[in-house]
Design a binder for these strands. Structure first.
Lengths: 140, 140
DNA sequence: TAATATTTGTTTCATTTGTAACTATTTTTG
DNA sequence: CAAAAATAGTTACAAATGAAACAAATATTA
C-alpha cells in the first residue's frame, strides 16, 4: 500500500494545498480568513438573512457561523438587525464597507480560480466538473 | 459568484467529507487518528526510519510527527531505537502489535477506497487519476 | 580545532476547532 | 392554555494544530 497513491490521502493533500494558498492570500491581501470570506460571499448574494440560513448556504456549522459573524460585525463589514418575526434570530447584511470589500475580493477569487482552470483544457474542465458532482452525489 | 460552483470551495468540502468519514471510521474501528494512521502506513513499508524521513514521506510537519510517534510508542505499536550515526535522531519501526494492526487496517483502507472508486467507470477513474496528477504538478 | 551555522526533534504558547451544555424564544401537543 | 419539545444562537471546555523558541547534536568554515 502506497500512501501517495491512496485516493483519500491525495485528495486531502490537494485540497489542503489549494485552501492554504487561498487562506494565506486573503489574510495578506484583505485581512480575512476563509470562514469570513465564505460568509461574506454568501451575504453578498443573499442580503438580510439569519445565521441559520448562512449555515445552510455555506455548509458551515452554527458555532463557526456565530463566531464568524461576530468577528465580521466587529471588523465593521456587517450590520445586524433584529429578525422581525423571531426574537432569537438576527438578520445580517453587508454594510457599505462590506460591499466595497467584496467588490475587490470576488474578482480576485475568480481570477485565482481562472488561473487554476486555465491550466486545464476544455475536456479536463468538463471531467473535473463531472467528477466533483459525482463524488458529491456518492458521498451525500 | 456562487460559492457552490467555486472550485476551491468544492474541493475543500469534498475532501473534508472523505477525510472526516475515514477519521471517524478509524477511531471507531481501531482507535487511531489520521496522523497515526499515516505514520503507521509509512512505517509498514519503510521500517527503521527517523522522524525526519517520516515527515518527508508523509508530508506532515515535524511537530505533528513528533507527537504522533510519541503517541504510537505509548500505545505500543512502535519501537524506538537510537540512530547509529546521529545521536539526535531515533529510528522507528512497527513492533509485532503494530504489524498485526496494519494487517487489519490496510485491507480495510483499500476496501474503502475501492468502494469509492467502484462507483466510477474506467474512464472516470483514469480522468480522476490524471486530474490529481495535473493539479499536483500545477500546485508544486 | 574552535567558533559558527545548521539540523533534529521537543516543548511552549496562542489560535482554531468542534462537542456539549446552556439561555432564550418559539412551536407543538395534550 | 400550560407543559413539553424543538429551535436559534452563544458560551464553556477540551482537543488539535502550527509557529516560534528551545536544547542537543552534527556539520561547516575560517
Amino acid at each position: 500500500m502506497d500512501l501517495n497513491q491512496f485516493l483519500p490521502y491525495q485528495l486531502s493533500i490537494l485540497s489542503l494545498k489549494i485552501s492554504n494558498g487561498i487562506a494565506e492570500h486573503y489574510q495578506d491581501q484583505f485581512g480575512i480568513n476563509i470562514s469570513e470570506w465564505r460568509v461574506l460571499v454568501i451575504l453578498y448574494k443573499n442580503p438580510d438573512i439569519t445565521a441559520k440560513k448562512i449555515a445552510q448556504l455555506s455548509q458551515m456549522d452554527k458555532v463557526r457561523i456565530s463566531r464568524t459573524v461576530k468577528s465580521l460585525v466587529q471588523k465593521n463589514y456587517l450590520t445586524q438587525s433584529q429578525h422581525p418575526l423571531d426574537a432569537r434570530a438576527k438578520n445580517y447584511e453587508l454594510n457599505e464597507r462590506g460591499r466595497y470589500l467584496m467588490r475587490a475580493v470576488i474578482p480576485d477569487a475568480l481570477r485565482y480560480e481562472e488561473e487554476l482552470l486555465s491550466q486545464l483544457n476544455q475536456d479536463e474542465r468538463a471531467q473535473l466538473h463531472h467528477l466533483i458532482g459525482k463524488f458529491n452525489r456518492i458521498l451525500g
